[in-house]
Design a protein around this nucleic acid. Structure first.
Lengths: 188, 188
DNA sequence: GTCTATACACTGATAGAC
DNA sequence: GTCTATCAGTGTATAGAC
């Protein structure tokens, strides 16, 4: 329950914007108990919270990647699912670690590394899906990085605009992006 | 000097991670002076800092958009320029408002709106460039949103990985993305 | 293992001398 | 207009009773 609450708050308010006291209040956990389970305090909680969010993201992604036979349809539906998510005003969780990553990149090395791993695992999942559908490995890896960047950026803009429309626009570009399966088709 | 220092710190550490006292120390401004010029305190400083960063971004972008005749070359060089920027360990400024935007999206409505405007102006500059090079207006707008998302996400991942390589990978996908000039070429 | 009271640094902001 | 001393509040973390 501590990690559930912490990961929700960290995603919305960031690392510096979320206090231990707030985590305690909202989760109902007493302070002594929290520091017993997480002796290293806030940073340790953040590390575990990031891992938890990562697992949730991977789970959603795996499901979406298998939901359609055509890989283009799968990615488009994946992005549109996330878009609907960002429409709801009262959504408590963004399934996104970009805020934590940006905040801690130059200040908390351990957290930075945890975020780096999370990004990498997400990319690998995209790349494997593309390879499974016949894309050449090097191109699949580049496209996976591109789609990951696209999603990270579009979610940031979607939450700033309080609308999933930005995500829907990028979903429309997926067919263009995934056009050629071998790297020769990359240039016109 | 206050705004220069504030915008640098806000970009790197975020809104909640940057204290008024730190801005004062690093800029050499006494506290009384700061609150005389910015009576509304931290939030007012952040608003002006975001506007300053936005102007810098627009300036760099305008320059890059005019630096090559071919629009694909222009965008690729633009992204590669930013990539080099993210390689240097001691770069103090990220020319990026995504962190501020994410942090304040659900807590500081005024800052959220300032960031929303900044994103919008960046997108308009990309769209105008594409229209000028013959892209149909609706497609140009969609591609502008896509490139903006791509850059926002890739910069986040680049600073997490402490390397501009992610940006270089997305630069390689620009030709594929900008392939067709009319919306009919959007689907295979 | 669980909890409360508390330490102590730091936050944003202000009052009032100059 | 410029500066400093200080405020009340909050931050993380800990000590020690139970």
């Amino acid at each position: 329950m501590i990690l559930e609450t912490a990961s929700r708050l960290f995603q919305r308010q960031g690392y510096n914007g979320t206090g231990i006291n707030q985590i305690i209040e909202e989760s109902g956990t007493p302070k002594g108990s929290l520091y017993y389970h997480f002796p290293n305090g806030k940073e340790e909680i953040a590390i575990e919270a990031i891992k938890l969010v990562k697992e949730k993201i991977l789970e959603h992604t795996k499901h979406d990647m298998l939901a359609a036979d055509d890989v283009i349809d799968a990615f488009q539906q994946h992005i549109n699912n996330i878009a609907d998510f960002y429409d709801t005003e009262d959504c408590t969780e963004w399934l996104k670690i970009g805020l934590l990553a940006s905040e801690t990149a130059s200040t908390h090395e351990t957290l930075r590394l945890t975020c780096e791993t999370a990004f990498k695992e997400g990319q690998m999942l995209y790349a494997d899906t593309l390879i499974k559908h016949g894309y050449e490995t090097p191109l699949a890896q580049e496209l996976a990085i591109t789609i990951n960047s696209l999603l990270e950026g579009a979610t940031t803009i979607s939450l700033t605009r309080k609308s999933g429309d930005t995500l829907r626009v990028i979903a429309k570009q997926i067919p263009t992006l995934l056009r050629g399966k071998n790297s020769g088709g990359n240039r016109e």
